[in-house]
Amino acid sequence: MLKYSIIVAVYNRTGEVKELLESAEKLDFERELFEFLFVDDGSKDGFQSFIEKYDSPTGLQTRAIYQENKGPGEARNNGMQNAKGEYLIFVDSDCMFPPHWLRTIDNDLGKYSLDAFGGPDTCHDSFSPLLKAINYSMTSKLGTGGTRGQKKSVGKFYPRSFNMGIHRKIYENIGGMNKLRHGQDMDFSQRIYDAGYKVGLIFDAFVYHKRRTSLSKFYRQIFNWGVARINLSIAHPSMLKLVHLLPAMVVLGLIFLALFTIIFPYLGGFLWIITGFGYLLINLTAFFQALFMYKNLKAALLSPITLNIQVFAYGFGLLKALWQTKILGRKEAEGFVKGYYGKKQLESR
């Protein structure tokens, strides 16, 4: 048996897979110990032809399996069912690896005997200013509280499917990912915790993650994360914390302040001045933090924009999900519908 199966769900992402494999060729790890298993979720962009002709210059073991378009969760489950490794590692197709990635995972598994694990995501120096700005908002404490793979964070660490691994016994004992439209990987992580397995963060096993390539796609992704939080809380009430409600509280606070100002214009105007000062301070902090991080003026200028998109998109998504589930009585809230994984699939990553 191989030690590691790296499972990559793919849907019309051949260009990204090429970059992923280019970085994988530089991995500092014995080729006979791991494989790349691509699960093609019904791609129409020539992926099958590309991967079947791929000839690794360093001896990477690559193979692919194919399914009708069913979404990333079903693709990952299919990958787990067909993987040959003792450990099953998930990465997104828009990720790239530093050379030490798999070696670091292997070393820490030997030290800490983890059953499940995850690593952070970050940006590569070659990424565009927009991707760097998105990375800032996604990893800074202003944006997420450091919950995405920081050594110190405001919440519990949940491995996520862009960089997540499990021992095969977990899949054999609790099964794969469920059919939630949003937040499948978070639900999977919580089920792993509930089953009593040892879960840990491998901080130095980061991947370079491109994430969304436009502000509109970023908004829809984060909106759906707000929706996902409510769906997750229905299945696992402990997964909804005060920190997750803060963006929605910001949205509601501004709405109430606007209504208050109509009734009490002078006092409301004074409160807007205080709010505006705090808002300016937060955005200046984001600008200077990003400037210090990237030494790139355009990335720094974009970072307050992506930070605001993240906060408001998450807040609106969470509020919409609360309306659908608590007021309309739906069992599962829905976010943006978009032909991203297929005509009927919801964008969930």
Rank of each mutant, 00 (worst) to 15 (best):
Q48S: 15
Q48E: 13
S49K: 11
F50Y: 11
Y54F: 02
P57F: 05
P57C: 05
Q61K: 14
Q61E: 15
R63I: 03
A64C: 06
Y66L: 08
Q67N: 04
Q67M: 13
G71P: 07
G73P: 11
E74H: 12
A75P: 00
R76T: 10
N77V: 02
N77D: 07
N78K: 11
G79Y: 12
M80G: 00
Q81V: 14
A83P: 02
A83D: 00
A83G: 00
I89L: 03
I89Y: 04
F90H: 14
D94G: 05
C95M: 15
M96D: 10
M96S: 14
P99H: 07
H100C: 11
H100Q: 12
L102Y: 03
R103D: 15
R103L: 10
T104G: 01
T104P: 02
D108S: 12
G110S: 07
K111F: 04
K111R: 13
Y112G: 01
S113T: 15
L114P: 07
G119R: 03
H124L: 07
D125L: 14
S128T: 08
S128A: 05
S128N: 04
S128H: 08
P129V: 07
K132V: 08
A133C: 04
I134N: 00
N135T: 14
Y136N: 04
S137M: 03
T139H: 06
T139Q: 09
K141G: 12
L142F: 04
G143R: 03
G145C: 01
G146Y: 01
T147E: 14
T147V: 14
R148E: 09
R148Q: 03
G149L: 01
G149K: 03
K152E: 11
S153I: 08
S153A: 10
V154Y: 09
G155C: 06
K156G: 06
K156I: 08
K156L: 14
P159N: 01
S161Q: 15
F162D: 02
F162L: 10
F162R: 05
M164R: 02
G165A: 05
Y171R: 03
E172R: 10
N173F: 09
N173V: 08
G175S: 09
G176K: 06
G176S: 06
M177T: 13
